[in-house]
Design a protein around this nucleic acid. Structure first.
Lengths: 205, 205, 205, 205
DNA sequence: TATGAATGAGTGTTCATTCAT
DNA sequence: AATGAATGAACACTCATTCAT
């Protein structure tokens, strides 16, 4: 479920050609019409390839979705992880870093964000379970961060889980309403959502 | 789009025969597998009816979805509207009323909430446009309420639209993670989200 | 397969109501779209009756077609027969009478003529066989008439069967191209086709 | 609408694989049962292919009919055109050429003739309009020829349109009654109908 | 790397027909 | 004399997938 054609192995970062055309097309159309609303023919047509070429790179439609969701989830988690490693120890700054990363991701990889959110349920159990670890790891970043802030008296929310869910839901929703070229700059948007998040956890200095 | 075969309107909550078995089954399965992931045969089977009986009551799969989404959107809007009419003039109380209504709806009509949210994009343009008025009316309730609170000095958020979106997203998300019998009572949950919403709009007494 | 409701008996010439509405509707739509292109629902709708009412009068769609074709074939044959009985013994006049009757029928019962011609093949064997007698009787009128004309030296065609087929085909085709209100009067048209027929049989005085 | 899958044009008489098996089967069954009386499964079965293979070659049942009718109409027109180009300038000979060509076509491509005649009305408007030009061109061959014969004093019919319709109807009808191996040779049949046609236009030397 | 030709199961939908009322 | 509700079989068509080349 990574980058080489079905039965082979090869460079982990394929350039050009078939594979990328396919995942690119799949990304766009899955986002537009959803997994079940998309046919493998639609994808092949958009990729400018034959139907069979698609099967050279991916053994099934489900595999294509799983590969997509995997890349997205992985990418998002890594960005979060890196952002936290680059942040100081201070809870408010760490929360800000996570919110900023998330907002940026929802905006700059808007299409992908919606796929990971909406098509998750269309993963077959096997794939879902495999990726669930990554997902929970991302959740744990939020959980730990908020727990730490509460423990150290920086945050004062009585129900950290609800606070976390509210923050994450608010950030995720951006991918659904944001329209590029809509006037707001990304840093400004990130700042606004950071402020909201800090209010949700009842941050006091 | 309600109780009579193929066309006509009537009571939204009929009892008995074919029509209800069908919408009931559709509700469940659309929620489980999504519109495109559901076959009309699945619905008929679950409803305990023949495939053709389904077409006696609804002229198409799309009509069935539209009827469902319409009922849900309508019902939600009416509850919000009523809650606001029964609330006092005080911004915080009005916000609380709206949040409470929404949380309750997301919990008590969890399945329906997810349909209205996730399957909206699978409505054909004609149906989407027809229902869009209702949707915008619901949004306006939030917009006006928050604007009023800001104007009267009860709320202090600099970006009311972002505040609104955050609150609504947080409330809506409940339908995705809430599991009945999960320990939290509904009033308690409503209270928690009211608190979160008041913090998001930066309510001060 | 005549005029009374399926299981009952009654007046042989039903007036008004259901039965006539149905056959009227069937006539029109069978002519427009053909037997297999017409659904029983189309007929019921056009007749302003429920689907089931149709089954009160006719046990099946096939029966409806057969009843229609029977009436048409019968009516045509009777008109031919009467015309010949009213004609003199002279071959040319008898041929003229038959042509005139046929032309008139194709024009005045245009829709019916096309049904009898085009939908004949959609009769089930049983019905086709039953009506074939009538059809052959009509053919025999032409055959005998022409044979008589030849025998008596009025007609001089070497191949009477081909002459007959040509005349009949030419007359029948009128139902396909004739448009009411198209400038030609019926008597004029009949006269033209009589002239053609007389030339085909090589009539000489 | 010929040899390549779904679109493209090519030789009208290919040999071999899928496409021809399909059009061959469609020809036979459309002729036997009519367009609406034929199911796409019947065709696939007769062609010895799967249902889906049929859709590899033709995008729809309607396309299949249109392709068939187009080939037939085109072929017939070309034969007429060639026959006239090879004929002398003499009206009677030209009429004979056209009648002979038509009779031959109705006999040798009997099945196809009936399809073009009977299924024309089952073409969707778009296809019908597209092919109508060809149809009218064929009609014009007759019209011009007869007008010329009248102008030059070779034909003496008072109503050339009726003469033409009668001749064409007579020739076309052959496809409905002719049975191969019925005793008459094709040249003999063509000669008989030529004689009839010349009588219809009242040809005199 | 890719394609053209094919397939079987499944899609949404319509069909003629039935039956209790 | 007519209807509302239902059915099973069939309809045209699309699906994800395969395989020889």
């Amino acid at each position: 479920m990574s980058s080489a054609p079905v039965e082979g192995s090869g460079s982990a970062v394929p350039r050009g050609g078939g594979r990328d055309a396919i995942t690119g097309a799949a990304r766009t159309i899955f986002a537009e019409r959803g997994y079940h609303g998309t046919s493998i023919r639609d994808i092949a047509k958009r990729a400018g390839l034959s139907l069979s070429a698609l099967y050279y790179w991916h053994p099934s439609k489900q595999h294509l979705l799983a590969a997509l969701v995997e890349e997205i989830t992985h990418d998002y988690f890594q960005r979060c992880d890196r952002a936290l490693r680059e942040a100081t120890d201070e809870p408010a700054e760490r929360l800000a870093a996570l919110v900023r990363t998330t907002v940026e991701y929802r905006v700059s990889r808007r299409v992908e964000s919606n796929i990971a959110t909406l098509e998750w349920r269309n993963l077959e159990p096997e794939n879902r379970e495999r990726l669930d670890g990554l997902r929970r790891a991302a959740t744990r970043l939020w959980v730990d961060l908020i727990a730490d802030g509460v423990a150290r008296g920086a945050f004062h929310c009585a129900h950290p889980d609800d606070a976390r869910r509210a923050i994450v839901a608010a950030c995720n929703a951006i991918a659904q309403w944001y329209e590029p070229g809509g006037g707001i700059t990304l840093p400004e948007l990130a700042e606004r959502y950071t402020a909201i998040a800090l209010r949700i956890v009842d941050h006091r200095v």
